[in-house]
């Protein structure tokens, strides 16, 4: 265990950036906190107290837009120039336990056969420093997915207690980074302090409105068709305005679309996040397999609660971060969906 003063964080970040590591940390801009690349200018607006960033740290392992290759024609031959793989080390600082789990969900998709090389390269460069949730909020429901907000995973875990950070490395990657910055940390053996903090967090989590258990046991792959054909989807999807807010701020939404851009002298192929809420999601030559908003809406929740667990040993692809609860323009969210299936038809 180590310790570092909150006020000394900028110094630590500066040291890392000087040595060629990008640092992304929660920074406040106006009313919002988001992970931003650390520079001297943002040092004064670092914000470790706000629980959730608007955008999830998914941005750093699976960026919204990723160029794959450029195609040009030379001497009547098509020449392809593949985009380079990520090769710069980076640190994401202050990732919440739910978001760490979110990245694990993405790993389970992109690092399994067939391995996504772009993702793999980017993921290999990153060190995740997670931060325990000292002040969980009403919209949190990570407990329902067995995520312990008091015991953050990732490469290094941090507990913020009285303006000082208790630092514990969890993996080899984390240990390497710790060695690199050891001269800026102090040794510490305040296990009691951390344990007290953990207890406190768990008590707070237990008191949250959504912690009283969501009926997730209703969503099992063997009931796939039953859930799929349920009449409740009609009602649930009525208020959906088909925007992509929930999917884009979600730490686990992982669908992407591959597109070409004609830039005149070349064609640039890139991939970008897609949203199942959009009318051209999985549009194919024959047409669209999901023609109504109800079908698209259903797809999102079926994927998170039924299809994904089916393929990944029962792991839901929701981590209970509550971003969709907070941001949906129509106040729809996954909690409402789960709860509405509480009673069997």
């Amino acid at each position: 265990m180590y310790k570092i003063d909150k006020d000394n964080l900028p110094e630590l970040f500066k040291f890392l950036t000087k040595n060629g590591t990008d640092v992304f940390a929660p920074v406040r801009k106006g009313n919002q906190v988001n992970f931003e690349s650390f520079t001297d200018e943002v040092a004064s607006t670092l914000d470790l107290d706000t629980l959730k960033t608007v955008r999830s740290p998914k941005d750093f392992v699976l960026p919204q837009v990723e160029h794959l290759f450029d195609a040009t024609i030379e001497n009547k031959q098509i020449k392809l120039e593949t985009s380079p793989l990520a090769d710069k080390p980076y640190v994401i600082f202050g990732v919440r336990p739910c978001d760490v789990k979110g990245i694990e969900v993405l790993d389970n998709v992109y690092l399994k056969d067939p391995v996504d090389k772009f993702y793999q390269a980017r993921r290999a460069q990153g060190v995740i420093i997670s931060l325990a949730c000292t002040n969980p909020q009403q919209t949190c429901f990570c407990k329902s997915f067995n995520i312990d907000a008091a015991n953050p995973q990732g490469d290094i875990a941090i507990w913020l207690i009285n303006d000082s950070l208790n630092w514990k490395s969890l993996t080899d990657k984390g240990a390497n980074l710790t060695t690199q910055v050891k001269h800026l940390l102090q040794e510490s053996s305040d296990i009691d302090e951390v344990e007290a903090c953990q207890k406190d967090i768990q008590l707070k989590i237990d008191a949250l409105p959504y912690s009283r258990g969501l009926p997730l046991d209703k969503f099992t792959p063997d009931k796939l068709l039953e859930i799929f054909n349920d009449a409740r989807w009609d009602e649930l999807s009525k208020a959906c305005i088909a925007c992509g807010t929930c999917t884009f701020i979600c730490p686990t939404c992982q669908c992407y679309d591959v597109k070409d851009y004609d830039a005149g002298k070349k064609v640039k192929r890139y991939r970008c996040w897609d949203s199942c809420m959009y009318s051209d999601f999985t549009l194919m030559a024959h047409g669209n397999s999901r023609n109504t908003q109800k079908e698209r809406f259903r797809q999102r929740y079926m994927h998170k609660l039924v299809y994904h667990p089916d393929k990944h040993h029962g792991e839901f692809s929701c981590v209970g971060c509550g971003r969709c609860v907070n941001k949906c323009p129509s106040s729809l969210n996954i909690v409402k969906v789960i709860k509405s299936f509480e009673v069997d038809n």
């Binding site: 955008r55 919204q64 305005i241 088909a242 925007c243 992509g244 807010t245 999917t247 884009f248 701020i249 949203s275 959009y278 009318s279 051209d280 323009p329």
Partner: peptide, 21 residues
Amino acid sequence: IRCNACRNACPPCGCKKCVFD
């Protein structure tokens, strides 16, 4: 982030097929 919420929540913004889709 191009979630299109501004477009979809807008009452007069009502093209069946938006030029951006």
